[in-house]
């Protein structure tokens, strides 16, 4: 199982992250100083690393404004990065303090983007049967972010727990 994270390249505006940040201020929370948003895709199926790289670079990432990371994931949700940053500028991010909130659909909830991705992977010439899940990832920057605060942001803003689940790490 692979997870692909699509990130905005440095120097490009992360409009969605900025919008979320202003909504966070709207909640009266001022501890968070910056938000970066990236999209997550989990691809399950009998595909090779080469194929997943093609999917990541040709399909899921905008070459001009975005870069990607590929992780291998096991059933427990543990993951390790197995790709290089497709844009090395991205490594700079890792030196900052941040927390992450991931948001995923609960089982049984229709994930419309996943159906489109499956169609597009076929168009790419990869004929294998795959399953796709999409998620949202928010990097929240700030000094020390309390778990309760992150829970508030997740519940009030980023995830509707009726149909979505979230993970903080």
């Amino acid at each position: 199982m692979f997870e692909i994270e699509v990130l905005t390249k440095e120097g490009f505006k992360n409009s969605r992250g900025e919008h979320v940040l202003s909504d966070i201020y709207g909640l009266g929370i001022e501890d968070i100083t910056n938000v970066e948003y990236s999209t997550l895709y989990v691809v399950e199926g009998d595909i090779s690393f080469g194929e997943i790289e093609t999917i990541a670079s040709e399909l899921l990432t905008d070459k001009v404004a975005e870069s990607y990371l590929i992780r291998r994931r096991d059933a427990e949700g543990n993951s390790e990065v197995i790709s290089k940053f497709s844009d090395t500028k991205e490594t700079g991010r890792l030196n900052h303090n941040f927390s992450v909130i991931e948001v995923w659909y609960k089982k049984g909830v229709t994930d419309t983007v996943s159906e489109s991705v499956i169609k597009a992977v076929k168009d790419l010439g990869i004929a294998k049967k795959i399953k796709v899940k999409t998620g949202h990832k928010y990097h929240l920057y700030g000094k020390i972010l309390q778990k309760t605060l992150l829970n508030t942001v997740a519940k009030k803003l980023l995830a509707n727990t009726l149909i979505q689940k979230y993970k903080i790490h």
């Binding site: 399909l59 168009d123 790419l124």
Partner: peptide
């Protein structure tokens, strides 16, 4: 096109390019 899923026009351009 295709809901602009992934990004606007992305799936259609992928389809056109490949097919």
């Amino acid at each position: 096109s295709y809901g602009d899923d992934i990004a606007s026009g992305k799936i259609l351009s992928n389809e056109i390019k490949n097919k």
